[in-house]
Simulated scan of single mutants.
Amino acid sequence: MDSAGDDTTQYRVLVVDDDEEVAATISLYLEDDTNLETVIETSAADALDRLDDEDIHCVISDYRMPRATGIDLLEDIREDYPALPFLLFTARGSELVASKAISAGATDYLPKGSPEKYDLLANRTRNAIEQAEARAELERAKARFDALVKNTEYTVITIDEASRIEYVNDAVEELLGYAPEDLDGEHLDTIIPDHPAADHETAVENSLEAGEKHVDWNGTEFSAVHADGTELTVEIAFDEYETGSAGHLFTGVMRRADD
């Protein structure tokens, strides 16, 4: 199944309910959102066939249906589509059903009821799809990054605002003799003791307040310490980016200065 793209993309939601009238009502509320379109199936078996044939971005299912429950459907879906958003929307629910649904990998669980419940369902459906799309894009970006850094001869290193090492690729072992896991969480001065850490961290703090880019280490040479204690000169080109959860990070490419 292909993932959706930009804001103009219509996300397709599969509504599974043996009561066609209820399914139609769900569809009506969802399609008030111009980015959502719906398809309806009245059995778990037909829903699985639909998933095989079409690009579906979210499934909304009733719980109690002939021959298979919504949780049975969820378990089957999770075998082939582990990341597909799945919302259980049922009038015959309970805390036990909710617990089983979440344990089986449901994205969300909502009881049926007043019209407000349908509005809530539409909102949670859109949120579930957008979060799944964001996770998928992050995974794609990470895969591209991993492929890049694993196939480069240069050492790639990421540090946080406090100059703690967040990531370093395998090439660091060839350059400095450390296994990547040995440097995870260590301060940058473990390998570059004379780097301007205090100045760097002060610049970070000041620039966060001013909203300006603050570190320019492009092509800067430093004395680095090999794991065996010997020193060598390395050249580092750092760039800065901001993440939602980790704040400002700095990723650099490091090589021997005489390469």
Rank of each mutant, 00 (worst) to 15 (best):
S207D: 06
A47V: 08
N218W: 02
T251F: 14
A246L: 15
D119H: 14
G185M: 02
N127Q: 13
L120T: 15
P193E: 10
D2N: 14
D49K: 13
V16G: 00
L87E: 00
D80H: 15
I192P: 00
A179D: 13
L138I: 07
L249Y: 05
S27T: 09
V204A: 09
A47H: 10
E201N: 12
G70E: 02
T8Y: 10
V253G: 02
K117R: 14
A104L: 07
L232M: 13
T38N: 05
V204L: 08
A44D: 02
K100P: 00
T69P: 02
E161F: 03
V168K: 01
Y178G: 00
E153R: 05
G105S: 11
A104M: 12
L51C: 06
E133G: 08
L96Q: 12
R256C: 11
E133I: 10
L36K: 03
A162H: 13
K117C: 08
S27Y: 01
E75V: 12
E41V: 09
S114P: 07
M254T: 03
A179K: 07
D170T: 13
P85H: 11
Y29D: 02
T233S: 05
A143S: 13
I165K: 01
Y63N: 08
L88P: 00
F250P: 00
N127H: 13
D80S: 15
A203R: 06
D189I: 10
E166Y: 04
D160Y: 04
A237K: 03
L188W: 13
V225T: 12
V15I: 15
V39Y: 03
T125E: 01
H226L: 07
W217H: 03
D76R: 11
T220G: 06
F145G: 08
K150Q: 09
G70Q: 06
E21K: 15
T69C: 04
W217Q: 01
V16E: 00
E173M: 08
D259V: 05
R64W: 09
E209P: 01
S114Q: 14
L183Q: 04
T251P: 06
R135Y: 13
S103R: 15
G70A: 10
S245Y: 14
L28Y: 11
E54K: 04
E240I: 02
